Amino acid sequence: MDGKERIELRSKLLQELYDIYFEKDGSGKKYSNEDLRSDSETNLAYEYLEQKHLLEKRFPGGRYTEFIITAHGIDEVEKNS
Rank of each mutant, 00 (worst) to 15 (best):
M1T: 03
M1A: 04
D2M: 04
G3N: 02
G3A: 06
K4H: 06
K4C: 02
K4G: 05
E5K: 13
R6S: 10
R6F: 07
I7C: 01
I7K: 13
E8A: 11
L9E: 06
L9I: 06
L9Q: 02
R10G: 03
R10S: 05
S11R: 04
S11E: 01
S11L: 02
S11F: 02
S11P: 03
L14P: 00
Q15K: 12
E16P: 04
D19E: 14
D19I: 14
I20V: 15
I20A: 10
I20K: 12
I20N: 11
Y21S: 06
Y21M: 01
Y21K: 06
Y21V: 07
F22Y: 15
F22A: 08
E23Q: 14
K24F: 10
K24T: 08
D25T: 12
D25F: 15
S27Q: 08
S27F: 12
S27L: 08
S27A: 15
K29Y: 02
K29L: 10
Y31A: 02
Y31M: 11
Y31N: 11
Y31V: 06
Y31G: 14
Y31L: 08
S32M: 11
N33C: 15
N33V: 15
E34S: 13
D35A: 10
R37G: 06
R37H: 09
R37V: 08
S38N: 14
D39P: 01
D39F: 01
S40I: 15
S40P: 12
S40E: 13
E41F: 06
T42L: 05
T42E: 14
N43D: 14
A45M: 00
A45H: 00
Y46T: 00
Y46F: 03
Y46W: 04
Y46A: 01
E47V: 11
E47R: 09
E47N: 09
E47M: 14
Y48E: 14
Y48K: 13
Y48Q: 13
Y48R: 10
L49R: 07
L49C: 07
E50A: 10
E50P: 05
E50H: 08
Q51I: 00
Q51A: 01
K52C: 04
K52P: 04
K52S: 10
H53T: 05
L54H: 07
L54M: 12
L54G: 06
L55Y: 14
L55E: 12
L55V: 09
L55Q: 04
E56P: 00
E56A: 13
R58N: 05
R58F: 02
R58D: 08
F59T: 04
F59W: 05
P60D: 03
P60S: 03
P60I: 06
G62W: 04
G62A: 09
G62D: 09
R63C: 03
R63K: 13
R63M: 09
Y64E: 13
Y64V: 13
Y64G: 04
Y64C: 11
Y64W: 14
T65M: 00
E66D: 02
E66P: 07
F67A: 01
F67W: 01
I68Q: 12
I68V: 15
I69F: 03
I69A: 02
I69H: 04
T70L: 12
T70H: 09
H72N: 08
G73Q: 04
G73F: 08
G73V: 01
I74P: 06
I74K: 08
D75S: 02
D75G: 04
D75N: 08
E76T: 09
E76L: 11
V77W: 12
V77F: 12
V77S: 12
E78T: 12
K79N: 04
K79V: 03
K79F: 05
N80H: 13
S81E: 15
S81P: 11
